[in-house]
Write a protein that binds this DNA or RNA. Sequence first.
DNA 1: CTATTCTACAACCAAATGGTTGTAGATCAG
DNA 2: CTGATCTACAACCATTTGGTTGTAGAATAG
Lengths: 106, 106
Amino acid sequence: MDRLFQAFADATRRDIVRRVTTGEYSVSGLAALYTMSFAAVQKHVAVLERASLVTKEKRGREQIVRANHDGLQKARRLLDEYEVIWRQRSERIADLLAETGPPTTP
Amino acid sequence: MDRLFQAFADATRRDIVRRVTTGEYSVSGLAALYTMSFAAVQKHVAVLERASLVTKEKRGREQIVRANHDGLQKARRLLDEYEVIWRQRSERIADLLAETGPPTTP
DNA sequence: CTATTCTACAACCAAATGGTTGTAGATCAG
DNA sequence: CTGATCTACAACCATTTGGTTGTAGAATAG
């Protein structure tokens, strides 16, 4: 889980995820999109791979990078949980406030 | 956005977020829950604060830590976008496959 | 076969991270 | 007033991160 969110904590990596969800890219194809070195992009892809957000598939001498839906879902579910808890709590507070009623009400 | 996901990339910080969504904690109240030093917890809260995930409110000599719903929503929306894009793409691929039809079909 | 392309990986560097201890200012309890 | 508690912040340290360059191996193009 640490690695998952860590992977999202970089704009280049988020962009790579966005790209590979919409199209097909080799590592060098991705590298061409950014000003940084090939090796740097290679490292970013490796981080995404360790976080189970993308997979690599060898095709000829190229390595095709693909999105891995599971990782995305996992991250979203955790945030959902937090939101559900928060919503329950804020509703509970709202209920308590409603129970008490305004100060001027009998 | 970097700071937002960075904030989630640590188990202690995720636990703090969970705690403060369900209850009311001072910084020292949180610190008592973990084996690390008070200063370390203080730093974690600062990271969460910079990421707009929690707010601090002074009450007497204590500082009450509260969840900030907006940050959670922002993170979740981004992941939603990725998922929507991915889903559209996988549906489009499914459509293309359906169009083509199985190889043995006339 | 030779040259080019794509990839992998090591070695290095500066900056950020996650932790520590120590010091000092407010606020509360007695 | 005095002592205890809560917080903030600085200084320091080890490790990780995000980047670089350089080297070497596979696969393709001509």
